[in-house]
C-alpha cells in the first residue's frame, strides 16, 4: 500500500498528469455551453423526419444528453490522455535513470510492475470519474435532467428515471475500455526507454484499428472481431432496449482478457529486461 501511494504520489507530482484533468475541465464545460446555446437546433435537425408525423412535447436538451454526447465525442481523445501517463510509468523512469533506484531495491520486478500497473489503473479511474462527475454535475446544473434521446440506427428515448444507471454503467464500461488502453501503453512502456515512443505507439495502434474498423471492406470485416477497439464502443449497448447483456459481457470479457494479456507480456518483458539506462 505504501508503494502504491509512492507511485501515485509520483504520478500526481508530474505536470503531465494534470493535462488530462485540465483537458477535461476545459472541454466538458465547453461542450456543455455549446449544447446549451445550440443544442436545440441540433436535436430538431436530427429529428426532422419525425416532425412530419409527430409533435414533440417536452425538453430533450438536458444534462443527461450532454453527458452522453461528451462520452461519445471524447471517447477517441481520452486514450491519448491516458497513454500520456501510463506510457510514461516505466519508460519515463528508464529515461530519467530512476528505474535503477527502483530495480535495485529488495522488491521483485513482478511486484514493481504490479504496483505501477495498479497506479496506472487508479489514475485512469480518477480521470474517468472526474469526466463522469464533471459531465453529469455540470450538465445537470446547466440543463437539468430529463428523458434521454439517443440517435443511432434506431432512435431511442429513455425515461428520465431510466437514464442515470445507463450513463453510470456506460462510464463504468468506458473505464474498462480505458484500462485496456492504459494496459497497452503500459506494455509499450516496458519496452521503451523514453515515454514518447509508447504514447505515439498506443495512439497509432488505436487510430489504425479504428480506421480499419470504419472501412467497410470484406478483408477488414474479417479482422474486425480481433481488434480490441471494436469492443471499446460497446458502452453504447447500454443505450439500447432490450439490453444486449450478452454482448456487453462479451465486450467486457474481451477487454478484460486484453488487459490480462498486456499485463502478462509487461511482466514477462520487464522481468527479463536489462536495465541499461
Amino acid at each position: 500500500m505504501n508503494l502504491l501511494r509512492f507511485e501515485l504520489f509520483k504520478i500526481f507530482c508530474k505536470p503531465r498528469t494534470y493535462i488530462g484533468f485540465a483537458a477535461i475541465a476545459v472541454l466538458v464545460p465547453l461542450i456543455q455551453i455549446a449544447l446549451y446555446i445550440d443544442g436545440q437546433t441540433y436535436i430538431e435537425f436530427s429529428l426532422q423526419n419525425l416532425k412530419e408525423a409527430f409533435d414533440f412535447q417536452g425538453e430533450l436538451l438536458n444534462g443527461y444528453l450532454a453527458s452522453y454526447i461528451i462520452l461519445a465525442t471524447l471517447y477517441v481523445h481520452i486514450p491519448f490522455l491516458i497513454a500520456l501517463v501510463s506510457g510514461d510509468l516505466l519508460a519515463g523512469e528508464a529515461a530519467s535513470g530512476t528505474l535503477r533506484l527502483l530495480v535495485t531495491r529488495p522488491i521483485s520486478r513482478t511486484r514493481l510492475v504490479l504496483i505501477k500497473f495498479a497506479a496506472a489503473m487508479t489514475y485512469t479511474a480518477a480521470l474517468i470519474l472526474f469526466m463522469a462527475l464533471a459531465s453529469l454535475i455540470l450538465g445537470i446544473l446547466i440543463m437539468g435532467t430529463g428523458d434521454l434521446i439517443v440517435i443511432r440506427n434506431t432512435i431511442y428515448v429513455f425515461s428520465e428515471s431510466d437514464v442515470l444507471w445507463r450513463l453510470l454503467s456506460a462510464f463504468g464500461f468506458g473505464l474498462v475500455a480505458m484500462w485496456c488502453v492504459a494496459s497497452l501503453s503500459f506494455m509499450f512502456s516496458s519496452f521503451a526507454s523514453n515515454s514518447i515512443g509508447p504514447i505515439i505507439l498506443t495512439m497509432t495502434v488505436i487510430i489504425s484499428f479504428i480506421v480499419i474498423s470504419a472501412i467497410d471492406l470484406s478483408v477488414f470485416r474479417v479482422i474486425k472481431p480481433f481488434l480490441f477497439t471494436t469492443y471499446m464502443g460497446s458502452w453504447k449497448l447500454f443505450f439500447e432496449e432490450p439490453l444486449a447483456l450478452r454482448d456487453i459481457w462479451l465486450s467486457t470479457g474481451v477487454l478484460g482478457l486484453h488487459i490480462l494479456v498486456f499485463l502478462t507480456v509487461t511482466i514477462i518483458n520487464f522481468k527479463r529486461k536489462d536495465i541499461l539506462s
Binding site: 436530427s46 423526419n49 408525423a53 454526447i69 471517447y75 440517435i151 443511432r152 440506427n153
Partner: peptide, 20 residues
C-alpha cells in the same frame, strides 16, 4: 396507423461513427 418514412438519421450528434 400511419405511413412514416425513415430518413437517413444524422449520426454526428451523438458521435456514432460506426453504423450498426
Amino acid at each position: 396507423t400511419f405511413d412514416i418514412r425513415k430518413n437517413e438519421l444524422p449520426l454526428g450528434l451523438t458521435g456514432d461513427f460506426e453504423r450498426a
